[in-house]
Amino acid sequence: MRPDNRAVRIGIGGPVGSGKTALVAALCRLLAGELRLAVVTNDIYTTEDADFLRRAGVLPDDRIRAVETGCCPHTAIRDDISANLDAVEELEDRLGPLDLVLVESGGDNLTATFSKGLVDHQIFVVDVAGGDKVPRKGGPGVTTADLLVINKTDLAPLVGADLGVMARDARARRGDLPTVFLSLVGEPGAAPVADWVRERVAEPHHTPRDHDPAPAHTHGP
């Protein structure tokens, strides 16, 4: 939990139903063999996503923690990150040194982003079934996330979504920030996102994290 050797923390956010949990499960399958990995979920209903991950068998039970968000999933990842920091630190304390902690937000809206006090990098997941206008609408998730994932491309013909329009709008909104089109049905699945995550984990920690462990036991005045 020292700033320079704690796990890299990556937040995965996005609207309800865009495929955040399926992406986390796919990343766990691809990365669990090579990285020391744990997951914190912020479900609106406490354990739904954590239970899905457990049932999917992608990680041992003790590497998944669920956090309650009191009806405010965006508050728990942005305005008051204490429960999430607690969960991340508890995992690191209990499991020993980790390479990567994925923090999955509860499904929220296009304005929900992670605090820099909680995560080092964030992925924002939208899906083509939400309409090909989503990248154009922008919002802090689409505009500023370190990686934008446009998910469920296999559904594009069924919902009349134009992937070319989405790519163009994403570029316009995001400048040089990367965007990945993804379908978790078939190959290569989440491999491009897993590659991006591997690069983040391999990076040296560029800045000392503005974060302290739980308060130390101190002496009297």
Binding site: S82, A83, L85, D86, D212, A214, P215, A216, H217, T218, H219, G220, P221
Partner: peptide, 24 residues
């Protein structure tokens, strides 16, 4: 205790000179 720990986390960040004789 969970709320106490969370409040203490905020306090030690906001007022770093806080005296805490109570443990984490």
């Amino acid at each position: 205790r969970a709320q106490g720990r969370a409040l203490l986390r905020a306090v030690t960040r906001i007022w770093p000179a806080a005296t805490n004789p109570a443990g984490p």
